[in-house]
């Protein structure tokens, strides 16, 4: 499912200061169906607001969203409608857990949408597996799980609703490296299985290059770039730096090599597995030259 934003502007009115703050300014972008897109930007650049606008949780002041070319309209009362095809995993999603068992927690969303019980149980068994937990977890209390497991349950509870597009707002914050990788792996598998779309908001540039096909860069509420990670991180380093953004390790490595050799190595992507062997070959070659 293709999601397109057209000239989105979002104003936030603060009654205390009596000021209107423009959080998002004229954002137009298209998220291709089945892609993994990462959104990067400093804290306060409007990433989380953009995610909410994408789901319909916030209604843009100006502009509109379309999905597969169809305009998303407010409901009859003129209130925003949350798109059922878009799932949103908030920061620290474990804070939303409230049920006594994981199964009930997973059933929460579907029940709100009027699913049958059997369908819910079936889906729950499927989904708990997707997030890397086994069926025995369904009867456990979410409260007694570890931080990482809670996080997985919360993600599963969003997957229950069978979204076609999944937006995750820093889903791995506070997790250790292995936990981080394994959650992202699970999400990647889910994406591949159903040709789903993933939109990942993150500060981890290394995660961006491992998974994303496209990167959206936000700065002060404006969309600065939407391009593939390789050209972004290799060619726009200064621009990113001026926005307070770092570049991934693999890009640093390639640029360092470019600096000493004067030449850029051609790589398939900025994934570590694509970069490391190339670099090693080059450096080894250099050593043998000396030997």
């Amino acid at each position: 499912m293709e999601l397109a934003l057209e000239h989105i502007q979002y104003d936030y009115y603060s009654p205390a200061t009596r000021e209107v703050k423009q959080v998002l300014t004229d954002i137009s972008c298209t998220i291709p169906s089945g892609a993994w897109v990462s959104i990067i930007g400093q804290t306060g650049s409007g990433k989380s607001t953009l995610a909410k606008v994408m789901q319909g949780l916030l209604w843009p002041t100006v502009g509109q969203n379309t999905m597969d070319g169809k305009l998303i309209k407010p409901n009859k009362k003129g209130k925003p409608t949350i798109s059922p095809d878009v799932g949103l995993v908030f920061q620290y999603p474990e804070h939303q857990l409230f049920e006594t068992t994981v199964l009930k927690e997973l059933a929460f969303g579907p029940r709100n949408r009027g699913w049958y019980k059997d369908a819910i149980v079936n889906k729950a068994q499927q989904v708990i597996d997707l997030v890397g937990l086994d069926a025995s977890y369904l009867e456990k209390s979410p409260l007694h799980l570890s931080g990482g497991e809670k996080r997985r349950v919360a993600i599963a509870s969003v997957l229950m609703l069978e979204p076609k597009i999944l937006i995750l707002d820093e889903p791995t914050a506070g997790l250790d490296p292995l936990g981080r990788q394994s959650i992202l792996q699970n999400i990647e598998e889910w994406r591949r299985q159903g040709n789903h779309t993933v939109i990942l908001i993150t500060h981890q540039m290394n995660d961006v290059v491992e998974y994303a096909e496209e990167v959206i860069v936000l700065h002060k509420g404006k969309l600065q770039f939407q391009m593939n990670p390789m050209s972004l991180f290799l060619d726009k380093r200064e621009e990113l730096q001026s926005m307070g953004l770092d570049i991934p390790d693999t890009a640093k490595l390639l640029l360092a090599i470019e600096k000493v050799t004067g030449q850029r190595i051609q790589v398939a992507s900025l994934k570590e597995l694509d970069v490391m062997p190339q670099v090693l070959t080059l450096l080894k070659g250099r050593r043998y030259q000396y030997d």
Binding site: D249, K252, A256, I257, K259, V260, L280, L283, R286, R287
Partner: peptide, 24 residues
């Protein structure tokens, strides 16, 4: 990785740029 190729990089070099510079 370089160590596996029996190329030793001095202990004190720990950043990417420094390492590339040294290796080259």
């Amino acid at each position: 990785q370089m160590q596996q190729e029996e190329v030793e990089v001095p202990m004190h070099i720990t950043d990417i740029e420094g390492m590339v510079e040294y290796l080259w």
